[in-house]
Computed example of a mutant assay.
Amino acid sequence: MRRVDVVYTLLVNEEGTKILMVKNSGRDTWTLPGGAVEQNETLEMAAIRETKEETGLDVEIQGVAAVNEGVFTELKQHVVFITFRGIIAGGRMEIVRPDEILAVDWIDVEQADELMPFYKEKLKDIVRRDAEVAYYDEGVMTK
């Protein structure tokens, strides 16, 4: 069974009522911006890259909001999902990869929970909770 790390970025509007989500082509589902971590890439780097690729926005990562995992027997994968809390630092909201992303939109928090019901603690509760788990990239260890 192959291990796969997937990162998401949770971006919330100033009022705390909407979450930025993307509609994925192929599966026709809405998710937070994110995707698989590439080789030689940190979790944070992947979250920043995936958000830019899927939304056109530059983000700063503010810590880990949630960690989920699942075993997908048909795919022979053990997937760990790390959801980072982020803030928009620049860029322009746009569909950069129309072959992968059909839409980018601010979705009401309650609707986001219906579209992405995978969190034990609901997205609306994660949004309301100000605290996040600290994330620190320790870099490359030689010993």
Rank of each mutant, 00 (worst) to 15 (best):
L10K: 01
M21V: 10
I126L: 15
I101T: 11
A89M: 06
V79L: 07
I107K: 05
G90Q: 02
G139V: 05
D105P: 07
T51S: 09
E14N: 14
Y8V: 00
I19S: 07
V96Y: 01
W30K: 00
I126Y: 04
T31E: 14
R3Y: 12
D28E: 13
T42N: 07
G90N: 04
V12C: 05
Y119G: 08
E132M: 13
K124C: 11
G35M: 04
L102R: 12
R27C: 14
T73Q: 09
W30V: 03
E121C: 04
L102I: 09
I95K: 02
V7T: 15
A66W: 04
V109A: 15
Y8R: 08
D58E: 12
W106H: 03
M116N: 13
F118M: 09
L11P: 06
M1I: 07
L10E: 03
D108T: 02
A47W: 01
Q62Y: 03
A112Q: 03
D105G: 06
V67N: 05
Y119Q: 03
E94M: 13
R92N: 10
I126D: 03
D113E: 12
D105H: 05
D108M: 05
K143T: 13
L43E: 01
E114A: 13
R85S: 11
I48F: 02
R2A: 10
G26N: 01
F72V: 13
G56C: 07
V140D: 06
A65Q: 04
Q62I: 06
L57E: 03
L43F: 06
E15H: 07
M116Y: 10
E44I: 12
R85Q: 09
R129T: 15
P98K: 00
V127K: 00
E54Q: 14
G35F: 04
R2I: 07
R97Y: 08
E38Q: 15
E53N: 12
H78R: 10
V7F: 08
A65M: 03
T55Y: 06
K18H: 15
Q111S: 11
V96K: 10
E74C: 07
R3D: 14
M141S: 15
L75E: 12
V140E: 11
R27H: 10
A66Y: 09
A89R: 10
R49N: 08
E54C: 05
I87W: 01
A46S: 15
I87A: 13
V4Y: 00
T73W: 06
G34D: 02
L11N: 02
V109I: 13
A131M: 12
L10V: 05
L123W: 01
V64H: 00
A103N: 14
V59K: 01
L20K: 00
D5P: 08
D105L: 05
L43N: 04
E60Y: 02
E38A: 15
N24D: 09
F118V: 11
A46I: 07
D125F: 08
L20W: 00
I87D: 07
V59H: 00
G86T: 01
E132W: 12
D137W: 05
A47C: 07
E50R: 15
K120M: 07
N68A: 08
L11Q: 00
D108V: 04
E69G: 09
N40D: 14
K143S: 15
N13H: 06
T42M: 10
Q39F: 15
V59L: 05
H78W: 12
Q111D: 14
D113W: 01
N24R: 15
V6H: 05
E41G: 07
E74R: 11
E110A: 14
K120C: 05
E54I: 03
M45T: 12
V96E: 02
R27Q: 14
I101S: 08
